[in-house]
């Protein structure tokens, strides 16, 4: 971990991401305004000392809305990451360790990966109907094959290493071999991949919301804030600019962290992962 702390861009990413995440987590303690409270007389107030990020078309505080909105955006990203961690590892390990399953699983993941990522997510979300959980499911389905593929590649390498052969020789069960010996050694590429998945999930959630396929506007995410504000971009640019910057900070932070993880944990990886 120490080399990570010396990695300049990783630290920059960590600071960016942590700042955004902390603000979102601590929203109720730092913002006293209610993100849903309307005050029509105060509509379209530009950023000022009273309203740091201005107010929207219904006079709601954008500071509160961006802070609370981050909770949903990050929660969606985190949920996608969690699903990726579970199913990506499961499928990747199965494919890498059980040669008989490899062909079928990888052809299926090839087929899913043949669709452009965001486009497939759009298709699934459109079919399932727009809610926050369908956005999570859609994005998970899109990114799991990519995670599984990376894990499989690592498993294929690690399973041939001496200590795994040794474990097999002393009669360890398959489950034990995979869980105790193989997976821990595949952690590095997984962490790298998951930090990128997090970044893409936050970005893609915004795209889905922009198309009206994400969470409903009653629980605003950053994507929804941009989508609602876009009609007022000339008169009240802060409605779109502020959540846009929030997304950019988060994604930039995650990307920088992913780069850092890759440099430090797994220098062999070079090719961009999506």
């Amino acid at each position: 971990m120490i080399p990570l702390l010396r990695h300049r861009s990783f630290m920059l990413g960590l600071v960016l991401f942590a700042a955004v995440a902390l603000v979102a987590l601590a929203a109720p303690f730092i913002v006293d305004a209610d993100p849903a409270r309307m005050a029509l007389r105060l509509r379209f107030k530009p950023p000022s000392s009273e309203f740091l990020f201005g107010t929207d078309n219904l006079g709601r505080s954008m500071l509160a809305r961006v802070c609370y909105g981050g909770r949903l955006s990050l929660a969606i990203g985190l949920a996608v990451v969690a699903l990726n961690a579970v199913f990506g590892v499961l499928i990747g390990a199965l494919a890498g360790y059980v040669p008989r399953l490899d062909g079928a699983l990888m052809r299926l993941s090839d087929a899913l990966m043949a669709f452009p990522a965001v486009l497939l997510a759009i298709g699934i979300a459109a079919a399932l109907g727009p809610t926050a959980s369908t956005a999570v499911i859609a994005l998970a389905i899109v990114y799991i094959p990519r995670t599984a593929r990376i894990l499989r590649a690592s498993v294929l390498v690690v399973r041939r290493l001496d200590f795994v052969e040794a474990a097999r020789a002393i009669g360890c069960g398959h489950l034990r071999i995979v869980a105790r010996h193989i997976l821990p050694n595949c952690l590095a590429p997984l962490i790298v991949q998951l930090s990128f998945v997090f970044a893409y999930a936050v970005l893609s959630e915004a795209v889905l919301s922009f198309l009206g396929l994400g969470a409903p506007p009653s629980v605003p995410s950053w994507g929804i804030l941009i989508s609602e504000g876009r009609g007022y971009i000339r008169e009240a640019p802060w409605l779109t600019v502020v959540p846009g910057i929030a997304i950019a900070m988060t994604v930039l932070g995650l990307n920088l962290m992913g780069d850092g993880f890759r440099d430090v944990l797994d220098p062999r990886l070079r090719v961009e992962q999506i």
Partner: peptide, 13 residues
């Protein structure tokens, strides 16, 4: 990195 991190529809607007 910024190019990879910005929502492109937002940039378009």
């Amino acid at each position: 990195l910024l190019g990879v991190s910005l929502p492109n529809f937002w940039l378009a607007l």
